[in-house]
């Protein structure tokens, strides 16, 4: 089984069927990472280039581990933004990589739409590993994968996403995916961090975290970055923690079996209290584990030969 999709640029371009196919395929790979020999020959002879223009530990490592466990040749290219300004254009970089015949280019870039741009200029499959404030599709897939494992389904769940929605590609990709699979989505943030026109995602908007969490099945907290202070978007991390931070008292208002998620890296004591992050209800490390399986699934669906089975 191979996907008709050439690239994974965003959840926006995926149908509910495509999403389920990614999730189901990833289930096949989940156990590979728990075996004693954590490697299958599926993508032997394939080349995956991780092209990272933004610092990332978790995502880059996750893609690298996923590629290697599939036996692909994985090349990591970390390009710092400062060298870009002096160096060659993204178009020339892509043309040069193209000349080396990669099968997959995994790209993280600070500019929204960069993955789309690359996809227009390469024959390789392009995986968007986060573009600006646009999308982070593999994060949404691994989040959905984690929720589905914990709850058995996605439809009709109430998912609260709280934090810096305005600057979050994770919130965008998650909202689209969860809505497409029938979940209810709530967004909660101070108005300075809530983007204009967010209602078009079909989400409910809340100003109060307690009310946003009321009866939720899933509470997903987003990282707040320190730049938001100098941009006059929030006055202090202290006030942010007091009004929009998740603590045990607020979490009590969620369903008794609600799970807590965070895409990382966490600011403990700011958007999430340590006792919540480390509680049995936290699935934050499950998300990381799911990340490898989901990225194996994505690489397989985009790069495997037609008829190639997942595990051999």
């Amino acid at each position: 089984m191979t996907s008709p999709l050439r690239h994974l640029l965003g959840i926006e371009e995926l149908s509910a069927r495509d999403i389920v196919q990614f999730l189901d395929t990833s289930e096949v790979f989940f156990d590979v990472s728990r075996r004693r020999v954590r490697k299958v020959p599926t993508l032997r002879g394939k080349t995956v280039i991780n092209l990272f223009y933004e610092a990332s530990t978790r995502t880059r490592t996750s893609f690298e581990v996923a590629g290697k466990r599939l036996s692909a040749d994985v090349i990591n290219l970390s390009v710092s933004a400062s060298s870009v300004s002096k160096g060659e254009s993204l178009l020339d970089t892509v043309k040069n990589l193209e000349a080396m015949h990669p099968d997959v280019i995994v790209v993280r870039h600070a500019s929204s739409g960069a993955a789309h741009f690359i996809a227009r200029h390469t024959r390789a499959a392009v995986v968007n590993a986060g573009d600006g404030t646009h999308e982070h599709p593999t994060q949404a897939l691994l989040d959905a994968f984690t929720i589905r494992r914990a709850k058995g389904r996605l439809a009709d769940l109430v998912v609260t996403i709280a934090g810096d929605i305005a600057h979050s590609r994770v919130a965008r990709s998650n909202a689209i995916l969860l809505r497409r699979l029938g979940a209810q989505v709530r967004f909660c943030a101070p108005r300075t961090l809530m983007p204009v026109g967010v209602e078009t995602y079909g989400v409910e908007v809340f100003d109060d975290l307690g009310r946003a969490v009321e009866g939720a099945d899933v509470v997903m907290m987003l990282r707040i970055q320190r730049e938001r202070l100098t941009e006059a978007l929030i006055p202090s991390t202290r006030e942010y923690a007091r009004t929009f931070g998740l603590n045990a008292r607020i979490l009590e208002r969620a369903k008794p079996d609600a799970i807590v998620m965070h895409p990382g890296p966490m600011n403990r004591g700011v958007e999430i209290d340590s006792d919540v992050a480390d509680s049995p209800r936290s699935v934050i490390l499950d998300q990381v584990e799911a990340g490898v399986a989901v990225r194996m699934g994505v690489l397989y669906l985009l790069a495997a030969e037609a008829g190639q089975s997942p595990l051999s």
Partner: peptide
Amino acid sequence: EGAVATRLGLKG
């Protein structure tokens, strides 16, 4: 700045 910019993740 509007719903399209939010969708595209572009500053409005």
